[in-house]
């Protein structure tokens, strides 16, 4: 598994500034195909910013990002290609409120992948079935609960057949009783071999599903390792402090 050709995401010394504030400080990481990486850290540590650079929602100013062999640069062709391969699930769901659930899921396949409407609808219904809300297909997002909305958002991402999915605190905006239904869907995905990077505070999920846990603080990767190692034997003081606060 140490073969570098299996690395689907390669970040080398990625740095990002917001004005004078350095949000990312030489972040380097390699993610293998099928790997599930959980990123955690205190708020403001740059973990969201980091995963947002992977699909260019934030522009990095230094270092290299290579996704699935494509270099992230100012080349719009590369940016578009990477965005087609990388799906993203947001904290606030960001479903399109003026479209039905079904339209939300078929939008990108029709307009970006140029699939026929019929084909995409069929696939969308399959995916909605898979996340367990096929009966809501014709409703508008506003009529669904938070947990249901987040599952629609996952189906919407899956409809593009991404090789990588980024999760940006997918359960933070949910009421406690809805967290499980979303985590369950994520666990299924993880077991199916999709590469996932999740920013989350759900340490139970990390322990159970993650191949690797990355701890970030002040824009840097402080520590990374297997969940077992990370939770039982953290090396850095900052990691210990964080774990003591969160567990």
């Amino acid at each position: 598994m140490s073969d570098s050709s299996e690395d689907i995401i390669v970040c080398e010394n990625v740095s990002k500034w917001f004005g004078d504030f350095r949000a990312l400080h030489d972040v380097s990481i390699r993610v293998k195909k099928g790997e599930v990486v959980v990123v955690c850290g205190p708020s403001g540590s740059g973990k969201s910013t980091f995963i947002r650079t992977i699909n260019r929602l934030e522009e990095h100013q230094q270092g290299r990002i290579i996704v699935d062999g494509i270099e992230m640069s100012n080349d719009i062709r590369n940016i578009d290609a990477i965005r087609r391969e990388v799906g993203m699930v947001f904290q606030q769901f960001n479903l399109f409120p003026h479209l039905t659930v079904l339209q939300n899921v078929t939008l990108a396949p029709v307009w970006v992948r140029k699939k026929t409407r019929k084909e995409s609808e069929q696939r969308a219904l399959e995916l909605l079935e898979r996340v367990g809300i096929v009966e809501q297909a014709l409703k508008f997002p506003g009529q669904l609960s938070g947990g249901q909305q987040q599952r629609v958002a996952i189906a919407r991402v899956l409809a593009m057949d991404p090789r990588i999915i980024l999760f940006d605190e997918p359960t933070s905006a949910l009421d406690p009783e809805m967290v499980k239904e979303v985590l369950d869907v994520m666990k299924t995905l993880a077991s199916e071999g999709i590469t996932m990077i999740c920013v989350t505070h759900e340490m139970g999920f990390a322990r159970e599903v993650a191949d690797r846990v990355v701890f970030m603080d002040r824009g840097q990767i402080v520590e990374e390792g297997t969940p077992e190692h990370f939770f039982t034997n953290p090396r850095h003081e900052r990691t210990k402090l964080f774990l003591s606060q969160i567990l």
Binding site: W17, D20, Q62, N74
Partner: peptide, 23 residues
């Protein structure tokens, strides 16, 4: 500040696909 952003890295992209030049 010593931590100001460094100049943009140079890459070779045809200009008609470079977002900055397009802008």
């Amino acid at each position: 500040m010593a931590t100001a952003a460094p100049p943009v890295q140079k890459t070779t992209i045809p200009f008609w696909r470079d977002t900055r030049i397009l802008a």
